[in-house]
Amino acid sequence: MNTLEISNLSKSFSGHQALTDINLLVPEQKIFGLLGPNGAGKTTLIRIINQIIKADSGQVLLNGDPLRPDHVYDIGYLPEERGLYKKMKVGEQAMYLAQLKGMSSRDARKQLDEWFDRFDITPWWNKKVEELSKGMAQKIQFITTVLHNPSLLILDEPFSGFDPINVDIVTQEILRLRDEGATIILSTHNMGSVEALCDHIGLINKSELVLSGELDEVRSRFKKEAYQLRFKGNMIAFTNALWTNFELLSKKTEDDVHTCEVNLLKGAKLNDLLNTMLPISEVLEAKPLIPSMHDIFIEAVGTSNENQDAS
């Protein structure tokens, strides 16, 4: 079951193409990483899902149904550019935002008490927002986003403004919410948190979806015929042995153990590499090199840009 099914979605703003024929599935109870360079169209896509703007064409299904006005109660949205009423008290404001999401004031109060307790911020209830630090305000925003238990959470750069301790706290909460049934769209430029949190990803570049799928599957798609080797022996002999079929990507030595990354060329196999090495060294470990999300992002965006330039 997919929480979100987006098909053939396009949107343009007075001549500027913001989204081109986007097809995307966000599976239920997963964390979906929505990636892309600045200005690629992520915010436009998120705003369409939130019914803030309408698409020119295409369809968005939430839990199987075309978007309806009451779907706003099923979605919690934490925009990247976010704020609170500075002059309003924290509690009053949280109650207001919760009621706008359709909660009764009794429900809102109960849930808020729980969340404030969990984040250990109950004493803030009667403070004005302008008295809070940025991190404190971010916590309030996070709470008001998830308070009404939406089935879909859209978090745009949720960690910005947090110290590492609070990043951990919020990360745990995101994982907990997913485990309790929520589907989460995480839009971020922090590839570390994508690798740590996301089950699926979609990458948008210049209004087009250029990459999507399960994180591990995407990574294996970008996997090269490259291996990381740890061995003992003579480094010079090793580099000499890597004759024409192999390319040395990196090397480093700690104590007397060498760690090298080697690319296999011209259809060579790991066996060929090992055959070359075994006579001159003691191989400790050989494992395939998995590309980082950082590398994948840069490569995918680079390729997409080349294709668009060419066409």
Binding site: Q51, Y77, L78, P79, Q141
Partner: peptide, 15 residues
């Protein structure tokens, strides 16, 4: 005020 303190996007995702 709503525009500059950026709460407006939060609100219009509800109303």
């Amino acid at each position: 005020e709503e525009k500059t303190n950026r709460i407006v996007e939060v609100i219009i995702s509800s109303v």
